[in-house]
Every structure is written in structure tokens, then in C-alpha cells.
Simulated scan of single mutants.
Amino acid sequence: MFAVAVVTFMLVLGALIDIILRQDGQVKHLPKTMWIMIVIFLPLIGCILWFTIGREYATPIDRGGFGDPRRRETPRPNADEPMRRNGKTTEDELAELDREIEFYNKQAQLRRLQGELDEPPRVSD
């Protein structure tokens, strides 16, 4: 009887530590606080639910197998091509940032010139 209590306590402790250390994106179906309450109030059932449906497991690593390997290969990006994000290369993004900086510099210059035009003329003696 004592052994069952110790095993249950260790299972609950492990589940609580696992829930707390997981990032929010790795927790499925309920928020982390709800999982913590389920594990505390329903120890055995809560732990079983957490480890079966509540947490996100890592995707299994393909270690090879039988059959034609060409069927399992996924197309890889060409190493000669620059990396693209949202259809743009890094050079395109840098050029876009340069244009944006130039635009805001011109806007600041126009505001400064407009401020000079709005000032009343100074009378010199």
C-alpha cells in the first residue's frame, strides 16, 4: 500500500514538473493551469491524461528502414540559392530597409523645411 502511494506521488510530481517546464506551445487541449489543477485534484487519472493527450511529443526521427529510400526523401532547398523568407532574399530585405530609411529621412527634412517656412521672418537692424 505504501509503495502505491509513493509511486503515485512520484508520478504526480513528475507530471507537475513536466507541465511547469513545458512551453505554452507544447501543451495541448487546455491551458497549463488547468492541467496542473487536474493533476492535483485527480492524481492518477490526471497524470494518465497529461501523459497521453496533454503534452506535445517531439516528432520521431527517421532512422531509415527497408524499401526504396527515394520514396522517403523530401526535396531539399538548393544550397546555391539564397535563403528566402516570404519570397524575399536578404538582399531584397536590406534594399527595402534602405528605401524605408531614405523615405523617413526625406520626411524629416520636409518637416524641418516646413517649420522654417512657418516661422515669421526675422527683422534685422
Results as ranks from 00 to 15, higher is better:
Met1Val: 11
Ala3Asp: 15
Ala3Gln: 15
Val4Gly: 10
Val6Cys: 12
Val7Thr: 15
Thr8His: 07
Phe9Thr: 11
Met10Arg: 14
Val12Pro: 03
Val12Asn: 02
Val12Asp: 03
Gly14Val: 05
Gly14Phe: 04
Leu16Thr: 08
Ile17Thr: 12
Asp18Arg: 08
Ile20Pro: 00
Gln23Gly: 13
Gln23Tyr: 03
Gln23His: 06
Gln23Phe: 06
Asp24Tyr: 00
Asp24Val: 05
Gly25Tyr: 04
Gln26Leu: 10
Gln26Cys: 05
Lys28Ile: 12
Lys28Val: 09
Leu30Trp: 08
Leu30Ser: 03
Leu30Val: 04
Ile38Trp: 04
Leu42Ile: 05
Pro43Met: 09
Gly46His: 02
Phe51Asp: 03
Ile53Pro: 01
Ile53Leu: 10
Ile53His: 02
Gly54Asp: 02
Gly54Tyr: 03
Arg55Lys: 15
Glu56Pro: 00
Ala58Thr: 01
Pro60Ala: 11
Pro60Leu: 08
Pro60Lys: 11
Pro60Phe: 03
Asp62Thr: 01
Arg63Glu: 09
Arg63Leu: 13
Arg63Met: 13
Pro69Lys: 07
Arg70Ala: 08
Arg70Gly: 04
Arg72Asn: 13
Arg76Asp: 05
Pro77Arg: 09
Pro77Ile: 00
Asn78Glu: 03
Ala79Pro: 14
Ala79Gly: 00
Asp80Glu: 09
Glu81Cys: 05
Glu81His: 09
Arg84Gln: 10
Arg84Ser: 04
Arg85Asp: 04
Arg85Thr: 10
Arg85Ala: 00
Asn86Leu: 07
Lys88Tyr: 10
Thr89Arg: 03
Glu91Asn: 10
Leu94Lys: 14
Leu94Ser: 04
Ala95Thr: 11
Ala95Cys: 07
Leu97Gln: 15
Arg99Glu: 15
Glu100His: 13
Glu100Cys: 07
Glu100Tyr: 13
Glu100Val: 06
Phe103Cys: 10
Asn105Val: 13
Gln109Ala: 14
Leu110Arg: 15
Leu110Asp: 13
Arg111Phe: 10
Arg112Thr: 12
Gly115Pro: 00
Asp118Val: 00
Asp118Ala: 08
Glu119Asn: 09
Arg122Asn: 07
Val123Arg: 10
Ser124Glu: 14
Ser124Pro: 06
